[in-house]
Design a protein around this nucleic acid. Structure first.
Lengths: 262, 262
DNA sequence: CCTTGTGAAAGGGTTCACAGCA
DNA sequence: TGCTGTGAACCCTTTCACAAGG
C-alpha cells in the first residue's frame, strides 16, 4: 500500500477478511436476539436467515474464526456470542467522543445502540461556546478547546465527527494529533489522515443517490428522458452535446443509443 | 438467483458495476466543488485525489459511462457534473418520506445535504399522535395513518426509516405496500422486502464495531488479553473452553496459539 | 442422517501498464 | 508530449458441492 510494489505481501493481516469483519456485527446482533430468547443453538441456515445472508457465506465467515460449531447440530448461541464479541474487541469498552453536537450529533448521543455493546460516550464536544455546559443526553457539552485534554485523559481512541463539512478536516486533524486512531465520519467530506488511522464514512446523501440510481433504472427502462440539453461538450465551441455518441463502448443510456438533441 | 442454475446470465444488468455506482456520488461532490470554484477542467489524477480514490479506478469508472474526457487534457467539469447527475437520476427530483421523527429522524429532516441534489422531503411521518402537526424542519409531522395517502398523493418512491428497531419491519411493509420501491434503513434490523425493492442500511453501531475490530488489532498485536473464561464450549459438560484449540485453521487469536485458561 | 467446514470454481473489483489520441 | 481509455493480470469475495464428523 505504501510503496505500490508487489513483492511485499502487504495487508497480510493473515486475519479475517474485511468482508467477513463487516458481517460479524450482523451475526452478533442476531445471536444476541436469540440469546435473549434463551435459544441454545442455531444452525447456519437459521442464523443466516436472521442475519440476512446465505448460509454458505456465514459458514465460510465463521470458518475464519475457528471451528466453533458442532456438525449435525449447529452453533452454541452463548459461546458464539462470546467468541464474536471477543473477536470484535467488544469485551473491553471503548470510550468515544462525538464532535459536533448539532442535530445529528445530539441524535447520535441519544442513540441507545451506541452504548449497547462496549461503547461509552466519553464526551460531547462542540465549537459553539453557547453550547458549552448544556446537557445533551445527560452529558454536558464541552468546548473544542478541551478536545486534546478530554482525549488523553480518557484514553479515547475512537472519534465520531458530526460537524458541518467545512469543519471536518480541521477537527479530524486535531483528533488525530491528540491520539485518535479510528474515526467515524458523518460529515460529507473526504478526510485525509495519516497511515494507521482508520476512517469509516457514513453519508446519507450518497446512500440516497445510490438508491436514486436504481430507482431510475426500474422506472426508466423505457420512459427514458432524453438529454434535455445539458452543458455542451468542451473543446470545439458549440459542438452538439451528442458528439460523444458512439465511441466503442455503450452510450450513457442503457439500451437506447444516445439521442441528445442539442 | 432464483434457480441457482448457472446457465441464465442473471443480474446481467449490462450496466454500471455496483462498486462504480457507489463512487459516482463521490465524484459528483468533488466535481460540484470544482464547479463552484469555476475550475473548467480536471485531470483524472486531480479529481481522484479530491474524491479520495486512485486515478486508475476513477478512469475505469468513467469508462463505464462513456468517453467523456479529452486525452492530453482531462475532463470538462460542467459536462461531467451533468453526465453523472443524469446517470444517477438526479436531474429529476425525488420526493422522499421520513418515517420516525425521533432524534435521528429530526436530524435527517434538518440535514441540508438532503435537499441539495434532487431530493425533496415530501413528508415527515410519526406514529406518536402527540407529534402530529408539530413542525420539524419547517414541515408539520403527519401521523402514520396518513402514510399510504401521502405516498400515493406525492408519488413517493423512496422512504427513509428512522424508527426504533421494533417498528421498522412493520413500517417497511406498509411503505412497500403503498408503492415505495427504495428504502434507506437507519433502524438496526434486517428488513425483509419483496424482489424489486432496494434496501440500503445505515448502521451506526455496526460501523463502530468494525472500527473497534481494527482498533483492537492495532493495540493488541502483543498485549492480547487471554480468554478470560467466557462461556464454556457446548456439548460435553465442563470441557475446558480451550477445546477448540488447533483444528487445522488458525485459532481465534492472531499470532499466538489459543491459550484460554478454563 | 444432519449440519459443519472447506477445497475448488466462479464472479467482481482493482490495479497495472500501455496503446491510442488530442 | 500528456492524459485518457482499456485489455490483462491480480486479488478478494461469493458460491458450489461435497468430504468429514458428531
Amino acid at each position: 500500500m505504501a510503496t505500490g510494489r508487489t513483492h511485499r505481501p502487504a495487508t497480510r493481516s493473515r486475519g479475517i477478511p474485511e468482508a467477513t469483519v463487516a458481517r460479524l456485527p450482523l451475526y452478533l446482533r442476531a445471536l444476541t436476539a436469540l440469546s435473549e430468547r434463551s435459544v441454545p443453538t442455531v444452525s447456519s441456515e437459521e442464523l443466516a436467515t436472521a442475519a440476512g445472508v446465505n448460509s454458505a457465506k456465514l459458514r465460510k465467515d465463521f470458518s475464519y474464526l475457528g471451528s466453533y460449531g458442532t456438525r449435525g447440530v449447529g452453533y452454541d448461541v452463548e459461546y458464539l456470542v462470546y467468541q464474536i464479541s471477543r473477536e470484535l474487541g467488544l469485551t473491553q469498552d471503548w470510550p468515544v467522543v462525538i464532535v459536533g453536537i448539532g442535530n445529528l450529533g445530539a441524535a447520535l448521543a441519544n442513540y441507545g445502540g451506541f452504548a449497547s455493546r462496549g461503547f461509552r460516550v466519553a464526551a460531547l464536544i462542540d465549537a459553539d461556546p453557547a453550547m458549552a455546559g448544556k446537557p445533551v443526553a445527560g452529558l454536558p457539552v464541552r468546548h473544542t478547546d478541551e478536545l486534546e485534554a478530554i482525549i488523553s485523559d480518557n484514553g479515547v481512541s475512537i472519534g465520531v465527527i458530526a460537524t458541518p463539512a467545512g469543519a471536518a478536516q480541521q477537527v479530524c486533524d486535531r483528533l488525530v494529533a491528540a491520539g485518535i486512531t479510528s474515526i467515524l465520519n458523518f460529515a460529507p467530506t473526504v478526510l485525509s489522515v495519516p497511515d494507521g488511522v482508520d476512517v469509516r464514512k457514513v453519508d446519507l446523501s450518497i446512500e440516497l443517490q445510490i438508491l436514486a440510481f436504481h430507482e431510475q433504472r426500474k422506472a426508466g427502462e423505457d420512459a427514458e428522458q432524453a438529454d434535455r440539453s445539458g452543458p455542451a461538450r468542451p473543446g470545439s465551441a458549440a459542438r452538439p452535446a451528442a458528439a460523444a455518441g458512439r465511441d466503442g463502448r455503450k452510450g450513457p443510456d442503457g439500451d437506447v443509443p444516445a439521442v441528445m438533441p442539442a
